[in-house]
Design a protein around this nucleic acid. Structure first.
Lengths: 360, 360
DNA sequence: TTGTATGCGTTATCAG
DNA sequence: CTGATAACGCATACAA
């Protein structure tokens, strides 16, 4: 399990000047080593610990005067709340979870980033776990995590709708990259991006286009295939679907043969990794990209522009998805009701060098 | 803050069969909603809660018979310890921290991965935080985190030695990618990899080689420059140092002009990002790689082989560094003394297409 | 508005 | 080997 620490959660500190000698405020009872508690503050401020607790957690439930006294004392002692002690009586942990299929997959990277940064800006700590691409470990990881966090974000979950709803019944849950009925979702609308991609391809003389599919259980892969089909129909292009073994660079390499056999002159892949592997293999076989075959990836991950030619891709605003999911979740944690339908974010085509005019 | 969840920390569960109807074991006093505690187990097992605690935490401090009874009861109730409640009296959190400069930097990715996986295998949860490349936020983040975790790993820290030692005085600390006196360190030994790189360059006819430096505060960048210097001397090559504005792809682009002006025909960069940006810019200017200029990166990050030609690079075993740092830290947490000197791991040259024979 | 008393789930100390 | 009981640090009903 991995946890991303937010940066707040303690009283502002102006580093009490190391003034003179022995005025070190005496710590608690036993071994000096431990950090100050609300009891120390209470003693120093001349109030009851419970008042300190109120002053530091709830705002405005204490007189402005004592509020200031307490804050000053806290600052002077360099006080920080003990998150564990706080979590015990309240049940709230100021923490939310995010489950991804693979921590090292750059696709999830931006999601993580987005979720952690908006979480952090609202004093929440992100707890991260990966499912190792397995639906089973995904549900166990979720279950386990749910007992430790205040809410949960599921990114491209592989488990089935019913299991997701079961989790959502326990604590607030938000899903990314998939539309689950009855559960708040943030899902990129692929139609715009795919539409742009297919029209661009058509304008460049392509007649037959192939879609390299992702994992069978991937809800998103299905949506993307649908998008490619309908856009192709609209643009009067033929569209064929080619299966991949796994959504990785290697998976892209393995699929090169099938692409060649398909007769397509342009291909859209489920994700950028597949596109990169495919392009490498094609080029290694002497196929010129984009002169002979145009390649369009999906997501615009880190490194998509490292290739030669740089990869044309349908950018999915992963960072925004993570960020909006976190916002949604945090709002729910603060009493707001989740939205009824799914929240859609736009995708857009990023034209780089791997797609272009078909040369006879 | 980000936290990577480990996968254990609960009693094995065999999913009590949904046998019949109303035999749901009654939960605690009030609202049914909460999870079972050791009190529930105690009641069900007919023993005292404290005995349950002993049976579940310490091994062998309870009779084999009651041990089994308790474990069975725990399993039946689907019991999981409450980490917060446990942390309170013990101070131990089964958690360790990792501070990196930038979560999205692929260099740290493998470190994170390595640390989290070996941590997880020993029932520890990784807490991750980033310093946003600032020494100041780095030390505050470390301080804050130190109060929440059992130990800390610092990856490529920017703060100065004294601050690191101060942290290490509080709780176990391990440093990666830097040698700090008096603190356990895991640092790649660059001499081997750089030696291989320079000899390979020399063998390919290069006479003058440039090093593109990283951030001024980077301890590692200094070591790498030293390595390049001494290896060049040994191979009778000239070596010049070129400064970069920032250790990113863009930083690499900006430095292209200086490289051309330097007269070097081969360049080794502080990291792969710089190498990739440099290569892109050079190629855009019509320079052929590696025919006219050879480029060697550092680290072998994700995407280093996406480029054309694929990047030759000195691989730094980042994953192993993270893993060994975690092992070290966890050992220290379990009473073992930290090693006296730094632990060194080897680097090695990965020859790909961006380096080769110099064509007149 | 503030103080008092109690509980959160677990471990640790002491008896028995 | 096991049971009672007091912390751990904080929050909260309730009383003042």
């Amino acid at each position: 399990m991995l946890l991303v620490a937010n940066s707040d959660y303690d009283v502002a500190v102006t580093e009490a000047t190391n003034s003179g000698a022995a005025t070190v405020p005496s710590r608690r009872g036993r071994g000096d080593k431990s950090s100050p508690t609300i009891y120390d503050i209470a003693k120093l401020a001349g109030v009851n610990p419970s008042t300190v607790s109120r002053a530091l957690s709830k705002p405005g439930r204490v007189s402005a005067k004592t509020q200031k006294i307490i804050e000053d004392a806290a600052e002077q002692l360099n006080y920080r709340v003990n998150p564990f002690a706080r979590a015990l009586p309240t049940g709230r942990t100021q923490t939310f979870g995010l489950i991804v299929a693979d921590i090292t997959n750059p696709t999830f990277f931006d999601i993580i980033r987005g979720a952690e940064s908006t979480g952090s800006s609202r004093d929440y700590t992100l707890v991260l776990a990966e499912s190792a691409e397995s639906a089973d470990t995904e549900v166990t990881a979720s279950r386990r995590m749910l007992s430790t966090v205040d809410g949960l974000i599921l990114a491209s979950p592989r488990m089935d709708d019913e299991q997701i709803r079961a989790l959502a019944a326990d604590k607030p849950v938000v899903v990314i990259n998939r539309d689950v009925d009855g559960v708040p979702c943030v899902v990129p609308d692929v139609t715009k991006g795919i539409g742009q991609a297919v029209r661009s391809l058509a304008a460049n003389g392509h007649k037959q286009i192939a879609y390299v599919a992702g994992p069978a259980q991937s809800w998103m892969s299905a949506r993307r295939w649908e998008g490619v089909q309908s856009a192709s129909e609209w643009s009067k292009l033929g569209a064929v679907r080619v299966e991949s073994s796994k959504p990785t660079v290697d998976g892209g390499r393995y699929v090169a043969r099938d692409i060649l056999d398909s007769g397509a002159t342009a291909v859209i892949t489920y994700n950028d990794l597949l596109a990169i592997g495919l392009m490498q293999e094609l080029q290694a076989a002497g196929v010129r990209v984009p002169d002979q075959i145009s390649i369009v990836g999906f997501d615009d991950i880190f490194g998509a522009d490292f290739t030669t030619p740089p990869l044309t891709t349908v950018r999915s605003p992963l960072g925004e998805c993570g960020s909006r999911a976190a916002t949604l979740l945090l709002d729910m944690l603060h009493g707001n009701e989740g939205p009824s339908g799914a929240i859609h974010v736009d995708t857009e085509l990023v034209v780089r060098g791997s797609s272009g005019r078909l040369l006879a």
